[in-house]
Amino acid sequence: MAIHERSLVEPERILRKERLVVDGVDVSGDWNLIIMPRVINDYDVDFGKDVLSQPEGKTINQCYQCSYCTASCPVHNYWDERYNPRHFIYLARLGMIDELQKRADVMWRCVSCHKCTHRCPKGVLVEEVLKAILKVMAKRGIIEEYPSKKFDKFFTESVLEYGRIEDGELLFGWIEKQGYNVVKDPILKKPIPFVGETPEWLKDLVMKPIKSMNIGFLVLNAKHMLFHPKTKNWSKFKQVLRKVMQEEGALH
C-alpha cells in the first residue's frame, strides 16, 4: 500500500511486516504495512509537578501560551524553528514526554539572552523554566546533560570560591578542561593566563578589545588574574551559601 501524504507520517510510526497475521487471518501482501496512530493516550502530570518544584521552575504555571517568548527568541527565529520555548512549556506542563523527547536534540540550544523573560507578559522566568525542564529531563534520562551545563557548573564553582567572577581563572580553567596545556603557578596551582597553550580564537577575541583598553584597567585585570582577590569575609558566607543552595537543590 502506498502512503499518500508521507510528510505527515514520521518514519518511527510506520510498521512493515513481511508476513502479517491478524486474528488468525493471513493478510500479508497488500496489507503488510501499519501506521501507528498518533493518539495522545495520557499525560505524565508528574513531569510538570517536577518542573514546578525546581527552584528555576516555579513560574511555569503562569504561562498562557501567548508566544511572546518564542516570537522574540533568536534561536527559534534564526536557527531552528523546532526550538520553541512556548511549546516546550506546554509539553512539560501536560507531561507529553514523547513529544519532548522528539525535540531533545534542539532543547539545549538556548543562548541565555533572556529576551523571552524580559518580554513575557505573564512574568514567567522563561529561560529559567527551560533550564528546569532540561534538568527534569536529564534526571529522568530523557536527555543527555547538555554541553553548556558543564560550563554553568564550572562558572558556579568559581563564583562560590571567590564571591565574584574571576575572568582569568574561569576562562583558563575552562580551557584546561577542553584539553589545552595550561601553565600553572607553583604556589596557588592556578592557571597563568596566556602563558601556556592558548586557542587561536581566544587570542583574537582578547587582542581586539585590549588595543582600545585603558592602561589602568589592563593592570588591574592582570593583577586580578595573578592574585585572585576574594570578596571580603567570603569564606564564612561561602559555607552558608553552599548549604542553602544544596538544600534548595540548586547545586548540581
Binding site: 501560551q65 508566544s67 518564542t70 516570537a71 522574540s72 527559534h76 527565529n77 524553528e81 520553541n84 512556548r86 511549546h87
Partner: peptide, 10 residues
Amino acid sequence: KHEDTIVQRP
C-alpha cells in the same frame, strides 16, 4: 513578528 502557534513557525 510573532510565532504562528498553530503552525509552530516563526
